[in-house]
Design a protein around this nucleic acid. Sequence first.
DNA 1: CAGTGTGAAGCGCTTCACAGCT
DNA 2: AGCTGTGAAGCGCTTCACACTG
Lengths: 205, 205
Amino acid sequence: MPERKPVPDPTLLRICRYLRILERQEANTISSAAIADAAGVNAAQVRKDLSFFGEFGQPGVGYNVQHLLASLKRMMGLDREREVVVIGAGALGSALINYPGFESRGFRIVGVFDNNPAKIGHRLRGYEVMAFDRLAEEIADRNVSLAIIAVPRLAAQDVADALIAAGVRGLLNFAPVTLRVPDHVVVRTVDLTLQLETLAYHLGD
Amino acid sequence: MPERKPVPDPTLLRICRYLRILERQEANTISSAAIADAAGVNAAQVRKDLSFFGEFGQPGVGYNVQHLLASLKRMMGLDREREVVVIGAGALGSALINYPGFESRGFRIVGVFDNNPAKIGHRLRGYEVMAFDRLAEEIADRNVSLAIIAVPRLAAQDVADALIAAGVRGLLNFAPVTLRVPDHVVVRTVDLTLQLETLAYHLGD
DNA sequence: CAGTGTGAAGCGCTTCACAGCT
DNA sequence: AGCTGTGAAGCGCTTCACACTG
């Protein structure tokens, strides 16, 4: 039996933050109020979020940290390793390749691709940079379902199309463009400049 | 007369995306439907978003691209340069320093800081890496109001505190932690792993 | 007529408030 | 008493629908 109601996206993002908080926790038990405080949200929000996945707490006591952690990881699909490929071996791709947060959360980078002949074949932080024409092969061989797109804006849609054709079902896109993908593919776009721009707005003049 | 109603945050983010779309536009005129299509949103949404800042369109015709572009840039506070400092000269900070999207949108990096003695004094992509103890001085001298935090999680809050004490009012935070800041400071946290984790959820098994 | 601007309806997330459990 | 789980209220963003305009 899968989940009854679709889980709101904001809830998913917060759950991941709760995971971080739980991992840093020393005590055996934690209350929704404590999680909420650490995450900067309302305590009812925390309980509501958790309720999408089941009942984990003990009234009058709180949540067992280890139990909650394990349960949430499983529900979020984070209880196993996942293979990821990175497309684009420029400055950003290079930084992402050994971003510690990926490995430590079970995302294993199994391939780095670029179409710049000057980069192909060379090693980048321990990974051999491969040409685009090996994309489909590697993705199929290694059962990759997630990809990180760190290529220039104009190349992003083509790269996305190729990845999807090769069987990738989730894209983390760093190019400042709205990618068109079929329904069965999920895209998250992280636009680094966008965030700075909204900060500029809030500064006023 | 400033804005009447507070502009919703989702609207601000979308307006920035509309800016991108308008910049790539060749025609003189564009309709809300065309903008909406390019941005992947509803046309009414586009019109409503724009209406927070004024009336820019001509019924039966659409919007004058150049006029709308200039108006939105002004309203978003993006019609001038802004000085930014980057804290953390690791892989991520290094990638951000010459991320082309920043410069091209008027964000000028005027200082790079790190507390690693092995890095201080060295040049990184054209910038001299400075020690933390020069933070306050540089920020004051150069009238910096925005900062990018690209340091490890445990250092992020201290760095934020120092930046705020030095007068910075906007923080773009890449550390996976909820920063505590006073009301007059705005924080945007970009958590790279978070996005990947929600993708894992959507993959199902 | 094609397309904007907007009041009003719709919808979904957040917060409240409290019953119920330990 | 303390804290969870949740129906219901609250609130804000999104979408609709249409009067209005060139």
